[in-house]
């Protein structure tokens, strides 16, 4: 069935329209890549799906698992299985990564009607998850993202995703600023989390990431609309011809 159905979605930031009618359907078991030039609205789409209150939805609808996603506060979306890996993960001095992860894990479990886990049980779970993103357990004792390198922050995002096991993972430019080794680790983590009953949306500016996370569908966002959709070969074509090519296509179709 369709996990996510976005219909004619329009959204603004600080009164400025960014998304101007996005329509997209994501089935379980699939990987969708959203590409596009700077300012095209890629990150806005990710933020709107995660429920960031700084973004205002002006019209359109989003149905997730048959529910009205836009009516749900961000924590309920997360509890229902939506996870966005942040482009710029937030530093939270004073809250340990371990405490944060366990709190999040237990909130999600509670929402599913499952028992909360105690710190010892959680530590066992973490050993397995840390391996997935090649992280040392000392990272758990540090404050959330505080003083982390760019690569560590992104790996920490994937670690959270591994712990929460979302139905819909949204990677918001997770590859930006990563060297090739960090990129491989992050992509490897994402691939290992892939299941027949979940789906992933990969938002990226570059084709490079898609060598490691192979998409089933590629959509090119230009000026707040999907200008072109295709298979993974579209990403390669974009890499070769550049974004000007689709920008012109979008211009031609609009006129």
């Amino acid at each position: 069935m369709s996990l996510l159905v976005i219909k004619d979605l329009k959204a603004s930031v600080a009164g400025k329209p960014i998304l101007k009618g996005v329509t997209l359907t994501v089935e379980t078991g699939s990987v969708h890549a959203i590409m596009g030039p700077n300012g095209s609205g890629k990150s806005t789409l990710a933020q709107v799906l995660a429920g960031n209150p700084a973004y205002e939805v002006t019209s359109g609808s989003v149905s997730y698992n048959g529910r009205d996603l836009l009516a749900m506060p961000p924590e309920e979306r997360a509890q229902a299985g939506i996870f966005m890996a942040f482009q710029y993960p937030v530093e939270i001095p004073g809250v340990s990564n371990a405490y944060f992860l366990r709190a999040a894990y237990n909130e999600v479990r509670k929402a599913r009607g499952e028992d909360e886990v105690d710190p010892l049980e959680f530590a066992d779970l973490m050993d397995e998850k840390l391996e997935l993103v090649d992280m040392d357990s000392s990272m758990l004792n540090r404050s959330v993202n505080t003083g982390f390198s760019g690569g560590e922050k992104k790996r920490n995002e994937i670690l959270q995703m591994a712990v929460l096991e979302p139905k819909l993972g949204i990677l918001d430019e997770t590859d930006s600023g990563l060297d090739i080794d960090a990129l491989r680790i992050v992509a490897n983590g994402v691939n290992k989390l892939k299941r027949p009953n979940n789906a992933t949306i990969v938002v990226t500016h570059y084709q490079r990431l898609l060598n490691y996370i192979v998409p089933d569908f590629v959509h090119v966002l230009v000026s707040g609309r999907i200008a072109k959709s295709g298979g993974k070969e579209l990403a390669l074509e974009l890499e070769e011809k550049g974004y000007d090519w689709v920008t012109e296509l979008a211009g031609a179709s609009a006129s």
Binding site: E75, V90, Q160
Partner: peptide, 26 residues
């Protein structure tokens, strides 16, 4: 920071308290 915590499933009230605690913990 509040949105970050909420986006991980942490309810509004708990997220606010955690951030308040973090302010003091420093």
């Amino acid at each position: 920071a509040l949105f970050y915590l909420k986006s991980r499933g942490i309810a509004n009230a708990l997220a606010r308290r955690l951030l308040t605690y973090a302010f003091a913990a420093d």
